[in-house]
Computed example of a mutant assay.
Amino acid sequence: MIVSLIALSIMQVEPASVGDYSFLSLFMMSDWVIKAVMLILVLASVWSWVVAVDKFIMITLLKRRATDFEDTFWSGRTLDELSAALGNDARDPMARVFAAAMREYNEGSGTQRIGSTNAKHERIDSVMNLVINRELAKAEKGLPVLGTVASISVFIGLFGTVWGIMNSFRAIAASESTNLAVVAPGIAEALFATALGLIAAIPAKIFYDMYLTDIDKYGGRLEGYADELSAILGRKLNAGG
């Protein structure tokens, strides 16, 4: 139907009757519904890009700091030396896992009994898992924004598309003409709303999938380190510290 209207109108329109259909002009000539749709989509797109840049910086720093900490951890220093050198400066999630495990390990070491070794080892594992879950929750903060923008922007744009086409039919009914100058504004609004919906949704979906994968890999890296640290502390506990 829309294609037929456009084809019929092209045969009837004079070149001079085609107006200015720049993005700004389309926004200014739109009714309040289309303007609201366009503003929502633009804001959603900007918001998703802000979150995406923030996540890129965060994930890059997490990977770099994890590599630096692993190099330090496997440098041959003892756990006590590493703990003393780390102090309260645990900016990296992996360092916070180490600090939490060492605090639990050192708690009551002087009065430890053989029968409590397994229980203490389990407490160390539990503490590390709690820290890992908390750190991953922090890392995932903001991802729901990308997921939401990716899922609803297309539908918001589709609503604008339908509304723009309805405006075109209203214009045809009011003017009793299918001239391109009559139907073009509504169709242009509809297509512009569709484009904005795709512009907002596609990058958000790409970033969401990419960062979710990166965080899953980083979570596996944290869990792998926690398993290695747990094995080391378990051997120390079984050897009596």
Rank of each mutant, 00 (worst) to 15 (best):
E176M: 09
A139P: 06
M29W: 09
L62C: 05
S17C: 12
W32Y: 13
L130Q: 12
A239F: 10
T117L: 14
E176D: 10
V18C: 07
Y21R: 04
I202P: 11
I2K: 01
A226N: 04
L86P: 00
S9L: 03
A52S: 15
R91I: 04
W49I: 13
E223T: 12
K120L: 12
W163L: 03
T111W: 12
V154G: 15
A181S: 15
A195G: 11
A52W: 02
L158R: 02
M94E: 00
S151N: 15
V46H: 02
L198C: 07
S48M: 08
N88A: 12
I172V: 09
L86V: 02
A90R: 14
A174E: 15
S168W: 01
E70W: 06
A231Q: 09
G115D: 11
A36R: 02
D214A: 15
S9F: 04
I187Y: 01
A181R: 05
K217C: 03
L229E: 01
T78P: 09
G220E: 13
G87M: 08
S22P: 02
E223M: 10
L43V: 15
L26N: 10
G87Q: 04
L212W: 00
S83T: 09
N106K: 15
S126Y: 13
F169V: 06
L130Y: 10
V50E: 05
F192Q: 02
K120R: 15
G110S: 11
P93R: 05
G110F: 08
S177N: 07
L198Y: 07
D227K: 15
A52Q: 03
M94C: 04
A204P: 03
S9K: 01
I232W: 05
G115E: 15
A195F: 07
L43H: 04
R221H: 12
N167S: 11
I232Q: 13
W49D: 04
R96T: 06
Y208T: 08
I124K: 02
S30Q: 02
A231H: 11
M58Y: 14
L79C: 12
P185C: 05
F23V: 13
E189I: 03
V127N: 02
G110C: 10
I2G: 06
A188E: 03
E223C: 02
M166D: 01
F155A: 14
R123I: 01
L212M: 12
G87D: 08
F159V: 11
L24S: 13
S230Y: 03
E140C: 03
I2D: 10
D71H: 09
I152G: 05
R134F: 01
F98D: 08
N167K: 06
A99P: 00
M1I: 10
V3H: 12
I57L: 14
M94G: 05
G220I: 03
A201P: 07
M11P: 00
I199N: 04
D80W: 07
S175Q: 14
V33Q: 10
A90E: 10
M28P: 03
G110M: 13
E14F: 07
V131Y: 00
E81K: 11
F23W: 14
M128C: 06
I152R: 00
I59G: 02
N88L: 05
M58G: 09
D54N: 11
R91P: 01
A184M: 14
M210F: 14
T60H: 14
R170A: 08
